[in-house]
Design a protein around this nucleic acid. Structure first.
Lengths: 192, 192
DNA sequence: CCTACCGATCGGTAGG
DNA sequence: CCTACCGATCGGTAGG
């Protein structure tokens, strides 16, 4: 009784192709070929091509939420939690790069109703970060910040990893995340 | 003798549609309709759909280069030049949002040969930023930095503006750029 | 710049 | 899961 169903294989193939070429540039025949099927046979596993996209985006939203949400409630200073959250976010991008790319960009290809749904998941995730930043401002660990802009600044930079991360590269995700956290908290200006 | 040829109108329509829906989700019929033509008539102005994409991406590359390159040689401290460059980059994103989006993301839809060309333009632009950061490190204005990672961090955050910038929003590009520059140089940690 | 069209390919289905 | 197919639409062209 294998844990990996055919559907899982289809989802993985679709995520890779959507991330690599984009949703609209990927055909159901491409996806079917990757899993050794003919295009018609895919429809025994999925409802439609868009259904596939929605499932992948949902998975991405879950991955990020599950990685970061638990960090909010650990008994640590906000500064420490922010550093942990940044690493958790970037680790998720690196570990599930295709899914992360689809969650971060390709969700735009969804039809309006599904897009609205995704917008809510994204807002819920972004809200975790706003709370984290707010906590640090209130405790005096962070400067008074424009919360929305700071969240955009940090999250955009961290998510950008999906565009260039190379598992074979010299730096590990943990090392990159540590450098990014340092840039975010300390800035680039030299201090006496 | 109007300065705006039909080709300019076609390019503008294509940039808007490529940015909004993506290259593959946009049809030549969509573009033709926006400028009041039938799809076949477009081909009096362009060679192919991909030709249109390449022209827009090239324009984007030029816009960014022309905005930032002159700043490198002005007689100012690196810190000041970095702040100016960040504002110039973000102003370019805001002013030509569609073109910037196509330059930043949709270039992936190009065929391999054209993609290689774009990769060179991008590398040339990124090199301006590496030089700027290096100058500040050498002068002692910036901490010792991992140049590539810092460039990615700063440029990814700044470019992210294209995803959410609203010309009708409460904050102007200049205000957003100033806040971003402050985050980049000072970090978020409170200081005594 | 339009009329009229083309071959190719798309997402998806019926019936087994 | 395959065979055999479908209507729709795609990028692009010929001839005026």
């Amino acid at each position: 009784m294998p844990r990996t169903s055919k559907l899982d294989a289809v989802l993985a193939a679709a995520a890779d192709l959507f991330a690599e070429r984009g949703y609209h540039a990927t055909t159901v025949r491409d996806i079917a070929e990757r899993v050794g099927l003919l295009s018609g046979s895919l429809y025994a596993h999925i409802d439609s091509k868009e259904d596939l996209l929605l499932r992948i985006v949902r998975q991405g939203g879950q991955d990020f939420h599950l990685a970061v949400e638990p960090i909010l409630s650990i008994p640590q200073p906000a500064m420490q939690k922010l550093i942990l959250a940044l690493a958790a976010h970037m680790r998720t991008v690196a570990k599930s790069r295709s899914i992360a790319t689809v969650f971060l960009y390709e969700w735009r290809a969804l039809s309006p109703a599904n897009r609205d749904q995704v917008l809510q998941w994204r807002a819920s995730y972004e809200n975790l970060w706003t709370r984290l930043l707010d906590e640090g401002v209130r405790s005096g660990e962070f400067r008074p910040l424009e919360l929305s802009l700071t969240r955009l600044f940090a999250l955009t930079a961290a998510s950008g990893l999906h565009e260039w991360y190379d598992p074979e590269g010299v730096l590990s995700v943990e090392e990159i995340a540590a450098i990014y956290a340092n840039l975010l908290t300390e800035g680039i200006r030299a201090r006496p």
